[in-house]
Nucleic acid binder design. Structure first.
Lengths: 207, 207
DNA sequence: GTCTATACTAAGATAGAC
DNA sequence: GTCTATCTTAGTATAGAC
């Protein structure tokens, strides 16, 4: 019969290969950056030939962009895409902050992603902007809305406050893990969070 | 006479060439990162031959490290190495913050330096640590000491507070300029500073 | 000390078989 | 669709002349 010409193993194996390629690309690009990564090593890490890589992605740049866009979505959901915020505001903020810090330091991939994203933001500005749009902006908007929806917190500028909260945590992560400062300027992340909550609490009392 | 053997143009022109090389290296490394930079282009940008570059620096890595260490010193002094802090504390903090934000966004070199430093921190951890030691740590220590020396600010954990203040500003700079988010999530830097000062002021009143 | 010319290696991308 | 083999360019580093 005619259908026999297409056996089970070869019909549309593309989706599978694409996934393999992206996995290999992730390993290599996150470890060595764009310029430091060779397509040979990507192919090897993916377990396919170089020609197969080029049959699914136009060139090195196309593969890189596809990977980063994919990772941007994934990272956002992993860190801030949890359950909706409910409960006593300051306690909620403490929990969210603690979870975010923990998630960032647990996930080794996250530090590597930040390195590549920031490191290549000069040569791939559109890519950086995609990440701003799909990670940073949604986080800031969610935080801002949460702060604004709790007038008892007496926050004049929720948008600016959201930046302060997020910035403090992300910068802490950058100095400690991304830049390997843990042993040079050691500090428990909880102190950042405690101090921020303390500030907010006093701010409520003073208003 | 014997001294004539050494004419004016050739005796010890090294320091001059070294400076040229470092200038060229800065231009190239800051624009393209470590792996993306070729020694050919460094030599061309420096206006010397490639062999001359190699006669002063062991290899590409050695040149890169020399450059980054040099820049770390320079950047710190440029942004935070100003006059000692005097005057009403909250007003001093506002001025320092404003100056820092302005300096960071004015100096195009600074964004490029952050990109390279963070981007290469995975492959050059020692280099990242040198920058933590010569830039971030001194800044945090100075801030902490300032905060601690003004008990009227009623700050329980000056060290953590220093991190919050610095982190908010640096993260703002990263999102707006380094990651090109200015048009996506626009905001005047003053709002960050105003909000932080407002928080500190209310914190004083509540204590 | 500095240059020109070159050895050697690796990388991006593709042609052609199956 | 996927592979092996290959073309071509570009990069690091050095040898040898001046």
């Amino acid at each position: 019969m005619i259908r026999a010409k297409t056996n089970e193993m070869e019909r549309e194996s593309s989706p599978e290969k694409v996934e393999q390629i992206l996995q290999g690309a992730m390993q290599e690009f996150l470890a060595h950056g764009f310029a430091g990564t060779s397509m040979d090593r990507v192919a090897a890490a993916a377990g396919v030939s170089k020609a197969t890589v080029y049959s699914h992605f136009a060139d090195k740049e196309g593969l890189f962009k596809a990977l980063i866009e994919r990772l941007a979505r994934k990272k956002f959901q992993l860190i801030f895409g949890s359950e909706p915020l409910e409960g006593e505001p300051l306690e909620v903020l403490r929990q969210v902050g603690t979870r975010a810090l923990e998630q960032m330091s647990t996930d080794q991939e996250h530090s590597a992603f930040m390195r590549v994203l920031i490191g290549e933001s000069g040569r791939f500005p559109e890519l950086a902007q995609i990440c701003v749009n799909s990670m940073i902006k949604p986080t800031l908007v969610a935080l801002k809305k949460y702060l604004a929806s709790h007038p008892e917190l007496k926050i004049r500028d929720p948008e600016a406050m959201a930046r302060i909260l997020l910035g403090s945590l992300v910068h802490f992560h950058i100095t400690q893990e991304v830049l390997h400062g843990e042993n040079i300027i050691p500090m428990k992340g909880d102190r950042i969070i405690d101090t921020m909550i303390d500030l907010l609490e006093k701010s409520v009392r003073a208003s």
